[in-house]
Every structure is written in structure tokens, then in C-alpha cells.
Design a protein around this nucleic acid. Sequence first.
DNA 1: GGATTTTTGGAGCGATGACACCAAAAATAA
DNA 2: TTATTTTTGGTGTCATCGCTCCAAAAATCC
Lengths: 226, 226
Amino acid sequence: MTPKIIEGRDIKGTKRGRGRPAVFDRSRALMAAMTLFWERGYEGTSFDDLIAAMGISASSFYNSFGSKEALYCEATKSYLDWSGHWFFAILNDPSIDTRTAFARLFESTAEEFTRGDHPPGCMISLAGTHCPPGMKHIREMMVEHRAFSEGAMAERIRKGIEAGDVPEDTDCDMLAAYYSAVARGLAVQARDGASREKLSEIGRLAMRAWPAGTARQQSGPGRNRG
Amino acid sequence: MTPKIIEGRDIKGTKRGRGRPAVFDRSRALMAAMTLFWERGYEGTSFDDLIAAMGISASSFYNSFGSKEALYCEATKSYLDWSGHWFFAILNDPSIDTRTAFARLFESTAEEFTRGDHPPGCMISLAGTHCPPGMKHIREMMVEHRAFSEGAMAERIRKGIEAGDVPEDTDCDMLAAYYSAVARGLAVQARDGASREKLSEIGRLAMRAWPAGTARQQSGPGRNRG
DNA sequence: GGATTTTTGGAGCGATGACACCAAAAATAA
DNA sequence: TTATTTTTGGTGTCATCGCTCCAAAAATCC
């Protein structure tokens, strides 16, 4: 097994405390776990699958991650860190108006859901929707994550009303719920093998439902003066 | 246990062949299984959960249904029989035009996804999307079911073009993919506890993406003369 | 160097999951 | 009645699942 250890530092070169150094790269292992959960779901991913993909032993697993459920939570957070990056970058981009932000959101979704370097679709959108009572905790966690992104969309639309690029009589929560639903639908399509172009076009169609008309300021960048 | 048997007939009063009569109602047991699969998913539903909910023994289970997977297929067909009823009744209603058909489809979806007498959401929409390699068969089955309903929608839109109530330059497959995605999204929303009104309104918003404009015959019932 | 701390390898464990087997029971057919 | 067919109850089985324990190894701290 020849642990390749550099004096005083671990594999990634960061300083360590005392104790035997880990032979594996924790964040790499976490990514491997994330990928597996993403592809197979929580229930479909077994303990043995995990430690095999992560390249570690059962002992190291529990020493470093605690339990399957704890690992799933961590993998989920890792995923959200990652996807939240592009998601919020677009949603909160001050240089574009609200409608453009949502259009770009779907362009990026189509892209992210069909990249070759990770499983298709989304790790959150469909997770914990149908599960046994014993998975209540996980289920509630996923429901919360979904509600969070829907809430962020609603907030963005509200800002759009303030900025004047969204009609004032728009039901922000409902419009967000709609776009949230479309995103979940895209996740299903992606899982079923839809192409990037197909997802893109679905997103474009979804944008045709954007509220028409009487915004104070029809288009152009939102000023976000509020 | 007292099996209540009427001479020569089984519980449901239908004629039997020879052999010891079954003490349980097969279609009732199937419904119970369907409900459980619907609520918890395939992996989340254990053998013991099933026979408990169906009120039968392991022997009766395997004698009558073969295996968990076979039962799942049967439960799925049962579900499709059932949901296909209202789905195709609306989709193929000759008295309404294409756009109205889709609007009604979503009204009904909102209703069916939030009825008290069965689990919320849909048994097909999100099933088999994230699963291990060993569930390939089930996965492919569900992908096919989803493709089937999407195909039916596309077909209906094509008929709409023929009938003249849908613009001729409409991309039928893509529009169907969009509405299919929305329906999947509604399933997620329903599973997360969305109200009937919320689903309804999402459906109404989705209808705003309907192709505008240059149909040969703007509205009114489609004649289906083709 | 010795104490301490942490990770690792490897074996094992109790529970559950899905199913298999078999003889008895209860019906019909001959 | 007897033979045949089918269902039932009960028990057993075999693999997997998620996890635990323990002693050895490899680092740091004093």
C-alpha cells in the first residue's frame, strides 16, 4: 500500500496534527461518494459500493465520515456548494435583468445536467421523493433544499419587481414554483437521456410563460437600487 | 382465519377452477402493493412491508405474484390503467381543441396528484431515475413509460396541427417534452406537499408557453377531420 | 525515547431482505 | 371415495447491509 507521505504534511500538502496520516484524499473520496449517490440514489448505493469507489476501508470510512447517512449529508452539501456556485452567480448577476437571469439559469441547467464529467441530471431535484418512513430525515432535508432554491428564485423575482423589470402584479412565489417545477422536470429528462439541446429548448419554451407586459421598465439590466 | 368461502366461487364471486381457494382478494392486495410502492418507491418497499400491507403470507405472495419485481411491474400496469384512463380521456376528447386539452390535462393532474385516497404525486414520473445497475430492467421500464406519455402528447399536438388549431411551425416533440417536464415537476411539487391550488396555478403558468399565433383555425373545438 | 493521538487492516456481527421448501389444507374432477 | 390441483402456514436459507471492534502502524508532542 506504500503510503506516500511527505514529512509533516498529508497528501494534499496541508499541515497535520499528530496521529497516523490518512492514506487517502478526503475530498477526493467525498467526490467519489457524491458521484455514486448522484447516479444511484441513497438507497441504491451500498456501503460496499461506497468504500470501493472511495478506495478506502470500512474502518477509514467510519473514522472519517461517521455513517452512510452522514456521508450523504456531506456529499449533498458538497453538491450544493458546487451547483450553488453557478446557480447564484446567474441569479444574482447585477448586470442582467430578471428575465435574462432566468433564461440563463435554464441555459446553464441544460449544460450542467448533461456534462460528461459527472452523472446527468441533479442530485437534489428528485431525491427523497418516494422513500420509506425510516428515511424521514433525509426526505425532509431534500424537501428543504428544494424549497430553498425555489425561495431564492422567488426572491429574485421580487427584486425584479422592485427594480421595475417584472410586472408588479406578478405572483412571485407562484412563478418561482413554476420555474422550480420546470427545473425538476429537466432533471427527469436528463436522467432519461435527453440531449443538451432538448433541455435547452425546453428551457426556452418555459421562458415563454414569463409574465408579459406592464413592468415599469420593460427590459435592460436591472438597477437593483432597492 | 375462517376463510369465508361460498360454494364454488371465490371471494369476489367469480367461478374458480379446482384447488384450494385463495383467502385474499388478489386485486385488493395488488392495490395495497401499488399504494406502498407509490409512497415508498421500489427500493424503499421491503418484502415484509408488502406482505403486511397486502395481508398475505410469503407463500401466498410468491404463489400469486412471483417476485417483488414482478409485483412491481404488475402494480405499475395497474397504475397506468388507472391514470391512463383520465389522461387519454382528456387527451383524446374530440370535443375540445388541443390547447384546451392540455389545459385540462394539467387541471386534472393537479387534482389527481393531491387526492386524499392515494399517495400524492405520481408513481411513474420520478421512478427509476437514480438507481443501481441491478435495477436496469426497472429503470428502462420506467423510462419507456415516461417516453410513452410524452409521445402521446406529441401525437396530440400533431393532430392539432392537422386540425388547424396549432400553428404549423410548432415543434411537436419539443412542446410535448416541455409539457412532459412540467408534469414531472408537478410530481416533485406534489411529493413535497404542494397544494392542489399551487399545482393548478403552475399548470396555468405552463400553459402561457403555448405557441402563439398563426394556426389556421385560432380556437374552438378541433374537427379531427384527418 | 516514550507517551499520545490518529488512522489502518482485517475480521466479525446482528439485522434485514428476498426468497425457497414442504407438508397440510381445501377445493374440484373423476 | 380417491385423485388431483392449488393455496396456505411455517420454517429455513443465503446473501447483503450497515456497522463495530481491536490491535497494529505511523505520525507528533514532550
